[in-house]
Design a protein around this nucleic acid. Structure first.
Lengths: 279, 279
DNA sequence: GCGGATTTAGAATATTTATTCCATTTCAAC
DNA sequence: GTTGAAATGGAATAAATATTCTAAATCCGC
């Protein structure tokens, strides 16, 4: 009858009311959970999205625990049981976009190859790219890149072919932010590399198949001791070895073409951050 | 005992195996369905995404029919029952937020003005733009624009300042699709308008504040009787009066800068559609 | 290695949810 | 209007699913 044994799990904690609350509660408790319950927590943490559409038995099987363990897990989190937890996820699903996905399907139904169907595909590719970027963005690399560029006199921007639109937008934003920037566009096959001066920095944008001129410029700058920032697709890109900071962007493409959404989002962020870092 | 009354619904049709198959089956049957079943079909058609996370009773209530009607509906589509139909959607289910929204919040929490927070904002702006585009896209205008451009000898692309990246990407895609295209970039203040020849077409890209040169080129082309396609922000844009087809794109911006995601998605779609309409 | 507390597994039960069935209604052709 | 066929609603039943309970296993401080 004493209260002395009252442990955390006995306290009537209120159930999480949002997915965010759910996640933080999960993070709180996960470390001091016994073996089976921790297994539940870990499985749930990486498969949160399946809660809405699975049964206790299925999730338990996935986590490799008996169903009853999963029940206890739900209760520890503050729910009366699995059903209550599941309700949270079923209701939270599809909040912001009431008819977005339906509409996309309608567009696609116009027939494969129709302009509307293509548009739907590119919209989807763009959205996936942005979401992937949100998940994978490396703040540290980004901050580092901003620091390098913010310290430069003039920022030299190079990016050709499919990366060229990004380069031009970057220059546009730099200009608006009063950052001195120069676009290396190889118009007229003129080589502007003499313009690289001590105190400057380079941002080079390239994706597979990597464009030689871009890499060459980065290499040149590096040789002269200028800081080089790379905006590319993977850490194995050939430009990486000539760069002092590497920002990678996962881009989903449809057919042969990149959506560029994620790349541009990253580029603007860089430019604006550099602009405001300078004041 | 005769087979003479055998109707469509009696034939043992195989159940749809994919969501796409499901949608086309639905479209096939929806027109010759009795009242209650049509109610089901219509509700399901606009709420396809809730199938995975709802019970028969919930969906039936939403469609305003008794549960048994919904059961018959499932069977007409070829499923043995609701559960089988739901399984299809549960397996295909993948919400947009495995941890997307949480992650965005984390980025923003790095502190207002930090590179990561900026990135989060631009990602969000891009995503909203794409979703808005999905909802507002006008297939008819798009198809019309494609037709005009597909009929042209050479496509002249013009877009300056913030629209310039879009113009360059458009030209890149046209090239890859073997469509003869020319970029009017006003490099060196050279005026290329003499290049407009009978049989050509123009695509002009401009957003508020509208760039004069772009509008001037459109006007010029129009005066010579060439078809002009406008890619712009609203139907009240000054370019509209010089255009034969107008494609509008809603773009959300953060701070002073457009995300361009929606605009680029639209531009690629146009270019690819034109390319395949030709070849 | 012993004793008390905690954790666990799985069987038993309760609840929810899907499915079937049939009496009644609606519809359309004659 | 009458008749037969199709459609409907709701109650009855079957199946799946969640939840609880308890005996056995495990863990931990001594």
């Amino acid at each position: 009858m004493t209260d002395e044994t009252t442990a955390i799990s006995d306290l009537p904690q209120p159930a999480p009311a949002t997915v965010d609350e759910f996640r933080s509660r999960l993070a709180e408790v996960i470390d001091d959970l016994p073996r089976r319950l921790r297994q539940c927590a870990e499985y749930i943490a990486t498969n949160t999205d399946r809660i809405a559409v699975s049964t206790v038995a299925e999730l338990a099987a996935g986590a490799d625990v008996p169903p009853s363990a999963l029940m206890r897990f739900c209760q520890i989190l503050g729910f009366t049981g699995f059903s209550e937890m599941q309700r949270l996820f079923r209701e939270a699903y599809s909040p912001g976009w009431p008819d977005y996905s339906t509409r996309l399907k309608n567009l696609k139904d116009q027939g494969a190859g129709s302009p509307a169907a293509l548009l739907a595909e590119f919209i989807e590719a763009g959205r996936l790219s942005l979401e992937a970027l949100a998940k994978s963005a490396d703040e540290v690399a980004l901050t580092q890149a901003v620091a390098l560029l913010a310290g430069a006199q003039t920022v030299h921007v190079v990016g050709l072919r499919r990366a060229f639109p990004v380069a031009t937008y970057l220059v546009y934003v730099f200009e608006k932010m009063a950052v001195s920037a120069m676009l290396h566009d190889s118009v007229g096959r003129l080589d502007h590399r003499f313009a690289l001066r001590p105190g400057d920095a380079v941002i080079a944008i390239t994706f597979a198949p990597y464009s030689e001129e871009t890499i060459a410029l980065a290499q040149d700058a590096k040789a002269r001791g200028l800081p080089v920032v790379a905006l590319t697709d993977t850490l194995t890109s050939p430009i990486v070895r000539y760069s002092d900071a590497v920002v990678t962007v996962p881009e989903v493409d449809f057919g042969a073409f990149r959506s560029l959404s994620a790349t541009i989002a990253m580029a603007i962020s860089l430019a604006v951050a550099v602009g405001s870092a300078r004041g």
